[in-house]
Simulated assay, not measured.
Amino acid sequence: MRHRIINPMAEIYKHLAISILFMFIGFFIGKEFLPVSFVYLANKILMFFMLFLLLTAIFSRKSIIPRSFSMNFVYVFTFIDGILMYPILSYYLQSLGTDIVINVLIGAIILFALLAFISHKKDAGHFLSLGPTLFASSLALLVVCIVNIFIGSSVTNLIISIVGLVIFSAYVLYDISLIKYDISMGNIVDKNDLSIHVLNLYVDFINILLDLLNIVDRFND
């Protein structure tokens, strides 16, 4: 049965918070059950994981992923994502310490909320013109990430994180603007129509968090 949505924006933020909670549940389950040796693979896994998130961001915005599907798929995705993030987050917890990681997490939340607020205050569709530039930038970043897997440059890795932070910060502006546009056009009428937007915002947030962690870790060295 399809349930009509009264306040789509509030529902999207609610499901985004639940999705992030599922990610952390997945992380703690990974922490309990994955071998400790996985932690030492974090540096290598990180680049492949970033490729995975980049591909998800690209696919979701080019209709390769359906625009309407069950929210349960988002929860399953974020839960598995949390398990996959265990070695990466464990690496940063060991390298930076719990306090710094928590501060970076708070910083990512504040940055995300600020960008969402800015976009929300603009007219519906205000930032949609960023779409082609962000798509091209994402593809270029994907290529650089693949090349860096083979060259393993720490400088390039830092540049990737800085550029990625800019791209996905801009994507928050774009995605909130797209949500407002879809609401104004009547394209969001039930819970399934929220799923692609929740997934996009989740990918934005996780990329911002990982990029910030990597930048802080590089400068901490």
Rank of each mutant, 00 (worst) to 15 (best):
172 V>D: 04
147 V>A: 13
132 P>I: 02
204 D>A: 05
204 D>C: 12
217 D>L: 07
180 K>C: 00
24 F>R: 09
122 K>I: 00
88 I>P: 00
34 L>Q: 05
142 L>V: 06
85 M>A: 13
43 N>K: 07
110 I>S: 12
173 L>W: 01
77 F>N: 12
159 I>T: 07
40 Y>M: 09
216 V>L: 06
142 L>R: 06
74 V>Q: 13
43 N>V: 01
47 M>A: 08
196 I>W: 13
183 I>H: 01
18 I>V: 15
65 I>G: 05
132 P>C: 00
190 D>E: 14
84 L>G: 03
154 S>F: 04
183 I>Y: 01
178 L>F: 04
78 T>C: 10
125 G>V: 02
4 R>T: 11
175 D>C: 02
156 T>Y: 06
74 V>H: 07
100 I>E: 03
166 V>H: 04
64 I>G: 04
187 N>D: 03
32 E>I: 02
187 N>G: 03
11 E>M: 13
56 T>Q: 15
59 F>T: 11
4 R>W: 05
36 V>A: 13
36 V>W: 09
50 M>F: 09
134 L>G: 01
110 I>N: 11
117 F>V: 07
221 D>Y: 07
50 M>R: 14
197 H>Y: 06
155 V>L: 15
186 G>P: 00
37 S>W: 08
111 L>M: 09
96 L>H: 05
30 G>S: 01
191 K>C: 02
189 V>Y: 10
138 S>D: 15
179 I>D: 03
98 T>G: 00
95 S>W: 06
55 L>C: 05
34 L>W: 04
91 Y>R: 03
132 P>Q: 02
116 A>G: 09
191 K>V: 10
134 L>I: 02
142 L>Q: 08
6 I>P: 02
206 I>F: 13
25 I>C: 02
15 H>R: 15
178 L>S: 07
218 R>C: 05
163 V>R: 10
82 G>D: 06
144 V>N: 09
107 G>D: 14
96 L>I: 02
152 G>V: 05
5 I>A: 10
110 I>C: 07
31 K>M: 04
68 S>M: 15
65 I>P: 04
211 D>A: 13
74 V>S: 12
99 D>R: 14
186 G>V: 01
141 L>Y: 12
157 N>F: 04
33 F>N: 03
147 V>G: 07
67 R>D: 15
5 I>V: 15
66 P>N: 11
147 V>K: 10
72 N>Q: 14
18 I>E: 09
95 S>F: 09
68 S>L: 14
28 F>T: 06
81 D>Q: 15
7 N>T: 06
58 I>N: 06
72 N>M: 14
